[in-house]
Design a protein around this nucleic acid. Structure first.
Length: 459
RNA sequence: UCCCCGGUAGCUCAAUCGGCAGAGCGGGUGGCUGUUAACCACUAGGUUGGCGGUUCGAGUCCGUCCCGGGGAGCCA
């Protein structure tokens, strides 16, 4: 009997093995006199395995169909390769063609393709080295996120995807409805709709995570998030995955410590479990990737208050397009200067003026700033946004009044402060931006298999 | 949504002042070779993003729409 091996297992073999089966796709084929070299990849790892196929037992027409992209089952023997460039190869006894990939129409060639072109064939791009690597890294990072939190006693909680709260202030929302929009005339009455009120896709699971944190202690969410903003940038998607930890009995420093620990841990983890993939990205995509990841591992992140950041930007010998003034939000050019030029590493900016931050952030003793923090990283910009939450009922209610928010809409949120309130803090981390940071891939459309962006819903 | 740049062969790109549509890679055919982005020769391949306009003549100029990239805003 033949034993099925994944390419990864075959390449890691310690000794020759008679009678193995490989199942995968032909990446390239090179012909020599009387036999062919087939490079087989099955997605289990970045590398291909070389299969040597003798022409003696094979018809010419059949051989002609063993082209780049075709799927095959190979039965043969794993032997040491007499050629240079690889330790192991498979001497084929039989090659079964499972699915053809006609060479005159198969879009993937044995050459580098542009990211823009590959996006138009998102159903085939995972079969390339770069996107295969990306998808393995994505999987490993998702698992790593769980591993990190679970090992620290955090509980994974599920926040709802359909939500009724519509003023979380995190951007435009998609409406969810069971009404027949095509037959609706005039004004929409959401009382007639499925939930009897307006419903949306979630833009954040934070408020729900706070509820669970105030019962389980330390929790995190990890799920899809939706923003209907008409954003056309390499850093925004309409559907993305967000990680939102929330800790009871924690303050802003605990929050920043967690974000820093998490990022360092994940960088170490991915270098361990996706060595070949990170190597690929560092060598061909971003020459500075290794140095950046190394600095994440070795150096503490910078931490400066918003006030210090403003002073620093004012002293900078650099012409900014937008004004730097206390009370104004930091622009992208300012954030880039801080993380890419001044500190050249991730930097937390904390204690922002309350006017430019959300209502739920905890008011500091100065009465002017709130305990908020953003983590700015080179190339990606804002990777994390978080805060200590306002746990004092009277302060929170006063703040909501200032902003004209209805207490009724948030009755359950306010109840958390009425009954056994505790200081607590959390943050949101964009999973795709994390992948961009760790791989060096520069467009968010290329770190998620099927990106959703304005006017793009093909796959 | 705003600003800038681009759209020419399957892919990546060239085409002078408005004057015959080009190359490399990929494909096909043949040759060579334990090959490694294989190599050598030959060959096929075009509604120049769509629509409209200017002109004797438009890939090239004008208008408009669509698509892509970069930057900005919004944010994770």
């Amino acid at each position: 009997m033949f034993m099925r091996l994944k390419v990864k297992e075959a390449l890691n073999a310690l000794e020759e093995k008679q009678g193995i089966v490989l199942k995968g796709w032909i990446r390239t084929r090179r012909d020599s006199k009387g036999f062919s070299f087939l490079e087989i990849n099955d997605g289990s790892c970045l590398k291909n395995i070389q299969v040597v196929l003798n022409w003696e037992n094979i018809e010419k027409e059949y051989l002609a169909k063993l082209t780049t992209g075709a799927s095959v089952v190979v039965e043969g023997d794993l032997v040491e390769s007499p050629g240079k460039g690889q330790k192991w190869e498979v001497s084929a006894r039989t090659v079964l063609l499972v699915g053809e990939a006609p060479a005159d129409s198969y879009p993937l060639q044995k050459k580098r393709h542009s990211d823009e072109f590959l996006r138009t064939i998102a159903h085939l791009r995972p079969r390339t080295n770069k996107y295969g690597a990306l998808n393995r890294v994505r999987s490993a990072l998702a698992f790593g996120v769980h591993k990190f939190f679970q090992e620290r006693g955090f509980f994974y909680v599920h926040a709802p995807i359909i939500t009724g709260s519509d003023c979380e202030g995190a951007g435009e929302m998609f409406t969810v409805t069971a009404l027949d929009l095509k037959s609706l005339k005039g004004k929409t009455d959401f009382k007639e709709d499925f939930f009897g009120q307006e419903a949306h896709l979630t833009v954040s699971g934070q408020l729900e995570a706070e509820i669970l944190a105030c019962a389980l202690g330390d929790v995190y969410t990890f799920g899809p998030t939706f923003r209907a903003e008409n954003s056309n940038t390499p850093r925004h998607a309409a559907e993305f995955w967000m990680i939102e930890p929330e800790m009871a009995f924690a303050d802003l420093k605990d929050d920043m410590d967690l974000a820093e620990d998490m990022l360092k841990w994940l960088v170490g983890y991915i270098q361990e479990v996706c060595k070949d993939e990170i190597e690929l990205f560092g060598r061909f995509l971003d020459k500075e990737l290794f140095a950046l990841l190394e600095s994440v591992l070795q150096e503490p992140f910078a931490r400066i208050s918003y006030t210090e950041a403003i002073e620093l930007l004012k002293k900078a010998k650099k012409d900014f397009e937008y004004p730097v003034e206390y009370g104004l939000d930091l622009q992208t050019e300012h954030e880039r200067y801080l993380s890419e030029e001044y500190f050249k590493k991730p930097v937390f900016v904390f204690d922002y003026p309350k006017e430019i931050k959300a209502f739920y952030m905890r008011l500091n003793d100065d009465g002017k700033t709130v305990a908020a923090m953003d983590l700015l990283v080179p190339r990606v910009g804002e990777l994390v946004g978080g805060s200590q939450r306002e746990e004092r009922l009277d302060v929170l209610v006063a703040r909501m009044k200032e902003l004209g928010l209805s207490e009724e809409d948030y009755w359950w949120y306010l109840d958390l402060r009425r009954f056994g309130t505790v200081p607590h803090a959390g943050f949101g981390l964009g999973f795709e931006r994390l992948i961009m940071f760790i791989t060096g891939i520069s467009n968010i459309r290329d770190v998620i298999p099927f990106p959703r962006t304005p006017r793009n819903l093909e796959f």
